[in-house]
Simulated scan of single mutants.
Amino acid sequence: MSAMPDQAAMPDQAAASAQHATSDQPRRVIILGSTGSIGTQALDVIRANPGRFDVVGLAAGSNRAEMDAQAAEFGVADLALGAVEAEQLVRGIDADVVLNGITGSVGLGPTLAALEEGRTLALANKESLIVGGELVKGIARHGQIVPVDSEHSAIAQALRSGTAGELSRLVLTASGGPFRGRTRESLAGVTPREALAHPTWNMGLVVTTNSATLVNKGLEVIEAHLLFDVPYDRIVVTVHPQSVIHSMVEFVDGSTIAQASPPDMRLPISLGLDWPNRVAGVGVPLDWNTPHSWTFEPLDTFAFPAVKLAKQVGRAGSTYPAVFNAANEQAVAAFHAGRIGFLDIVDTIEAVVQLHEPANAVLTREALTEAEVWARREADRIIAHV
């Protein structure tokens, strides 16, 4: 996995297209997190394209009733509940694509399973790559991971416009969340309800809160570095509140290629399911007969320090990203439980990261688990004294 398609950032386009074109068989898909936002939208794409995809496995976190209803509709016999069963499901079923839409670092096991079993991994579970880091990259074959995050899908699409040597910078766009333009001082008293009022995207509790704190964008910076092998000093974030430009690639001649579409995850999901082929009708195009105003502004790193902290964590590598992510999950839960304030979320993450000392030189699943357990315990200790 590196910066450009011809150097394995994405699955080989010609080979993938030829394979799809010469096969009369639908792509066999396992959907992990089938009852969540990504999973249900993936099923929308599949439902609208009969004969193109065949759902062979479903896994949900806890909503068994909804998963059973999905299984009945799509004729799926192989089901799993929870991340451990999801990993077993991936290892036990023949499939072409595994869409990992699980939320949180518990998605690491299924991610590793998909890669080890030779499946194409349509990755919406960014935490598994961020936490797993070199462990995940070390087992991924050429072009085996296809990003589903709208930002990284946009970058993958834009990278098809140039070669590795022509790349200058990656530009990740951020909506700014519900608190764009607010000062740090004014954020002290915001409520969980306000934090969940995202202006452009409809997402789950954790991801929506992460978007409000900009932790999500910090995680996406680490993800971009790992997916495309671009140094952190060549990955920048710009605030784009309309969420129409999903990210951009800047080339050495000064040209910037942007991917634009209305905010709808069905488009990047469809590309993840059938890269590099586009699936007709999954999204509504922009209406060029009506006026549009798109704005861009610099990120306020004082009010929203999460991106700067994430870059530091990403550069440190080892188990630091796992600690960052685990501390955030604990802090987000505490915020929604009314135990800490909004600003305490990132402050808690920073405090835990500063205390961390990696125990092992070699990154293993066991080392990651130990680091996460430690980080959650330390976060809880800090939260108890806020």
Rank of each mutant, 00 (worst) to 15 (best):
I349N: 07
T369W: 05
R339F: 13
L343C: 03
E372M: 01
P358L: 12
N328T: 03
V353A: 11
R365G: 10
A334Y: 10
E366C: 08
T364V: 12
A361Q: 14
I349S: 11
F335L: 02
A334L: 14
L343N: 02
E370A: 14
V353Q: 10
G338L: 02
E372A: 00
D347R: 15
E372K: 04
D344I: 00
V352L: 06
E357V: 13
F342T: 02
E366R: 14
H336W: 06
E350R: 14
L368H: 04
E370T: 15
V353Y: 06
E370C: 14
A361I: 08
V352E: 03
A337T: 08
N360A: 15
I349T: 12
H336Y: 06
T364D: 06
A351E: 06
F335C: 01
H356T: 08
N360C: 07
V353T: 08
P358N: 07
R339V: 15
V346G: 01
T369C: 13
V362K: 09
E366Y: 12
N328R: 06
L363E: 07
I349G: 13
V346D: 00
A371I: 00
V352P: 05
N360H: 13
I345M: 06
R339G: 15
V362W: 15
Q354P: 11
Q354E: 12
L368S: 03
E329V: 03
E357A: 15
G341N: 02
A367M: 05
V346W: 03
E329R: 04
I340N: 09
I340W: 12
E372T: 00
V362P: 12
N328F: 05
D347Q: 13
Q354I: 07
I345C: 09
Q330E: 14
Q330H: 11
A359I: 11
V332L: 04
L363K: 00
V353F: 09
A367D: 09
V353K: 09
Q354R: 14
L368Q: 02
V346S: 00
H356D: 06
N328H: 08
A367I: 07
A334S: 09
D344T: 04
L343S: 03
L343P: 01
I349H: 08
E357F: 10
T348L: 08
L363W: 02
P358R: 10
I340K: 11
V353G: 08
E350Y: 12
D347G: 06
H356I: 12
H356L: 09
Q330P: 10
I340A: 11
I340C: 15
F335T: 04
L363N: 02
R339P: 14
F342S: 01
F335K: 04
A371C: 00
E350W: 09
G338W: 05
A337G: 12
A367T: 10
V362G: 08
E357S: 15
F342G: 01
A337M: 15
V332M: 04
N360F: 15
G338M: 03
N328C: 05
Q330M: 11
H356S: 07
R365Y: 10
L368W: 01
A367S: 09
V362I: 09
G341S: 02
A334V: 11
F335G: 01
D347P: 09
V352H: 07
V353D: 08
V352D: 00
I349D: 05
T369P: 04
L343K: 00
H356W: 14
V353N: 08
